[in-house]
């Protein structure tokens, strides 16, 4: 069994400075904020299930940047159709990492369907994402991430992680600040933002 913090640490160590991260709300965002906050990270504070969809729209419109989505099992189970849409439009620059702790841990620790039968990597493959792996220890994760970082995507990596609380950090509540900081990291002269 992996620890969420070691997965995120490995990710932070391997990605490039320009790589963009869309991170779901919850313990993972708190960990990421603690490990490596940077303007290239976008933190959600709601919209459960939508991280991969935001990542898809972004990956399709900035094809020269890598987009990494940090998602959870409870979140993606709310939006399984996202696998089908990602497979269909197949952005090469999208890596979808699902931290699967088999629990709605942030929302009171009730088990999700992955605690019993559901294999999210198989669901993604069935939806048409061929590069879809289930990993259970850190060497498997490292290998899967190296492959995802070196070969054309889209990629899905489902990492089985322990149910653990995060550091007591949380993304700032100034949502427009989070958005604008991220957009200016994509493009300092972003056409969708007013000039500074």
């Amino acid at each position: 069994m992996l620890r969420r913090i070691e997965v995120l640490k490995a990710l932070c160590n391997k990605i490039g400075d320009k790589d963009l991260i869309i991170c779901m709300f919850g313990h993972a965002a708190n960990d990421l904020l603690y490990l490596k906050d940077r303007p290239e990270n976008f933190y959600m504070r709601g919209g459960m299930g939508l991280a991969s969809s935001i990542g898809l729209g972004l990956a399709l419109t900035v094809p020269n940047r890598r987009v990494i989505v940090i998602d959870g099992d409870g979140s993606i189970l709310m939006n399984l159709g996202s696998f089908a849409t990602i497979a269909r439009y197949a952005p090469k620059n999208l890596i979808h990492i699902i931290l699967d702790n088999e629990s709605h841990y942030t929302a009171g620790d009730l088990p999700t369907a992955t605690a019993s039968k559901t294999d999210l990597a198989a669901v993604a493959r069935g939806a048409g994402i061929e590069n879809s792996l289930l990993v259970k220890d850190i060497s498997e994760f490292d290998k899967a991430l190296d492959k995802a970082l070196s070969e054309n995507g889209p990629h899905v990596i489902v990492a089985k992680v322990a149910r653990e609380s995060a550091m007591k950090w949380a993304p700032p509540k100034r949502l427009v600040y989070l958005k604008e900081r991220f957009m200016r990291a994509i493009n300092p002269d972003h056409p969708n933002l007013p000039k500074l």
Partner: peptide
């Protein structure tokens, strides 16, 4: 982009807005 569901579509549209599109 044809979405499977409208909620997903809102997410995709937000991503494309981040990417610089109207």
């Amino acid at each position: 982009i044809i979405a499977t569901r409208e909620e997903e579509g809102v997410g995709i549209a937000i991503g494309a807005y981040f990417g610089g599109y109207k």
